[in-house]
Write a protein that binds this DNA or RNA. Structure first.
Lengths: 344, 344
DNA sequence: TTGTACGCGTTATCAT
DNA sequence: ATGATAACGCGTACAA
């Protein structure tokens, strides 16, 4: 009925009455085998419940059919969503996904990358471009196929991402167009995070272009957490000349800011305008809806999978894929209050 | 400067002037080696930038230091959060995580399980207990260490979960205690989902205990998506005797229902009470806050990792870990409207 | 088209 | 404590 030991290629060969080589061919290059013997072999495989041993296969073929991804955290919905799509696309191609997380920490990212490469990942997905030279050198040294997502990488990188600077600039321009002059920002931690840094740069660029002082932009730098946004908002609003609009580095901060504003008795957007970045589900559920930058995270995940698989196969491809973003207006951004546009 | 080929155990042995066996021991059982030679070996490892080959190691040791997890989808925050904690705990132990998703589909789950076992996962994490006998047999056949989470499993299972029936019953009792008699439910799809089915059963049990008809419970079964909750709510409220309280199968549905109710001009909880299940972030952010069942997803993920690692090591352990849940009252559940408690 | 035989890089079992 | 050497399971030139 049931065998105690795991069947090996050898067992299948014996049952099918062929050599191990033929069995191997049947599984890997079915075309190189007669349909008749193939049938015999496959039924033997079925009968024994044979599963190829991973170690043996990896050792002989020097391929693991496994790729790794190191993301900041799955608890951020944007990465969860992108990774989900990434995994689905890989599964489609019979490739497994190893996930690791850095917690936005460069050291941990480096450690996880080493672990994944050591574990034999055929390729790797990384988020953003900001990382120590040491980590970069490690990847280069082992020539690990690597795709960068969520950012525009350098000319030498293969990436599937969007221009954080341009997108942030676009939404800042919208804020300015609404008449806001006292603008503040609640940003994620910028250390080793080019997305967060780029979004600040984009806002500064918009200010500058509008003839406003980019240095005057007050930036509260906090962890990506709802509560942190509240703390930051209170600090900002306690200033002698509080902002009339707050541009948030992502939707978690944006929604946190809206809730905090409400609890502070402020009406959004009448008293205070707030914008986000990412367009995750909750952005559409808060009251008022969060005006934000829409990023197609799923599409990016799918494209990243395709890019990485192509890269591993050595196929020619687009090394640089830019994903378009757009602004979604939902109501949390409105005209600047009249009293303050008069200001002093 | 840099070598073109990847250094192997052999290279390290040559440089250190020892045998491959010693190098292997240095890396795996450092205690069985003199500190003097160990030092020599380790510096050789460092100098060459040696990384053990995964295939070779897996083949010889019959261990991959890799575990797999098959979850419905990472896009559901509860799984993203639990999986994040799970992964962190594994990384701590030097174990890598392979993730796969089923999309709540039994066939896909089976396929992913096969893939992960074939890929050499030392153990596997699964969500819930409801799955075809065939899948169960497959796991038994290969004696794959397996932990079930998010549910109470059978006596033969190793699980780290909570009692979905009891938790749903508890919140239904609360709803009934608020005077509600016309109670409806918006549930997830129950096919091959014991959590969703269990939650309905729990609500029915509470109704029955309160002397209400459990068969009278109207259940709208929908996918776990915000929009689906809205559609379901509209159907429920269009009935001749609409419910005064809607118990939702999870927070995604609960929040979706609150938003849909608001758009329908209903005030929660004055006109309609709504409850959720899970206690994800948005439950605290909507207006009014969603009264829900708090589930410590991170703690469950950590405990699941510990259980699985112990199981793989063959260590004695608790095969059944029950996680406590609690009810969080936030405001979306209130007294039944007076007019309807009088009824028709 | 199919079979033979060797090599992939490591661990583990013996001796020493 | 260390070294020689045999597995480990599969892929693949090469031969038939």
């Amino acid at each position: 009925m049931d065998v105690s030991a795991k069947p090996k290629l050898d067992d299948v060969a014996r049952v099918a009455g062929v050599s191990t080589a033929t069995v191997s061919r049947c599984l890997n290059e079915p075309a190189k085998v007669t349909s008749k013997t193939r049938e015999r072999v496959l039924s033997a495989v079925e009968a024994l419940g044979y599963t190829p041993n991973f170690g043996g296969r990896a050792l002989a073929s020097r391929k693991t059919h496994t790729v790794g991804a190191v993301i900041p955290t799955m608890e951020n919905a944007i990465f969860a969503r992108g990774l989900q799509a990434f995994q689905e696309a890989l599964a489609e191609a019979g490739v497994n996904l190893l996930v690791a997380s850095s917690g936005y920490d460069a050291e941990r990212e480096a450690a996880q990358i080493r672990a994944l490469v050591g574990r034999g990942a055929d390729g790797i997905l990384l988020i953003g471009t900001a990382r120590p030279e040491k980590t970069r050198a490690f990847l280069k040294r082992f020539a690990t196929p690597c795709v960068i997502a969520w950012s525009i990488g350098g000319p030498g990188d293969v990436y599937v991402g969007f221009d954080n600077v341009a997108a942030a600039r676009a939404i800042a321009e919208r804020v300015i167009a609404f008449g806001h002059r006292r603008i503040a920002m609640i940003s994620g931690i910028t250390a080793m995070n080019d997305r967060a840094a780029g979004r600040i740069a984009g806002v500064r660029a918009a200010l500058s272009e509008a003839g406003l002082s980019p240095e005057g932009l007050v930036v509260e730098e906090v962890r990506y957490a709802f509560d942190e946004a509240g703390v930051a908002l209170h600090r900002l609003m306690a200033a002698p000349e509080p902002p009339t609009a707050i541009i948030c580095g992502n939707d978690v901060l944006g929604v946190g800011a809206i809730v905090a504003a409400r609890r502070r008795g402020l009406t959004v957007p009448c008293d205070l305008s707030i914008t986000g970045f990412d367009d995750i589900d909750i952005a559409a559920l808060v009251e008022p809806g969060l005006t934000t930058v829409h990023v197609p995270h799923r599409r990016m995940g799918l494209a990243a999978a395709k890019a990485l698989l192509d890269l591993i196969e050595g196929q020619p491809q687009d090394r640089h894929v830019s994903i378009e973003t757009s602004i979604i207006e939902r109501g949390s951004l409105g005209p600047a209050p009249r009293s303050s546009s008069i200001g002093r």
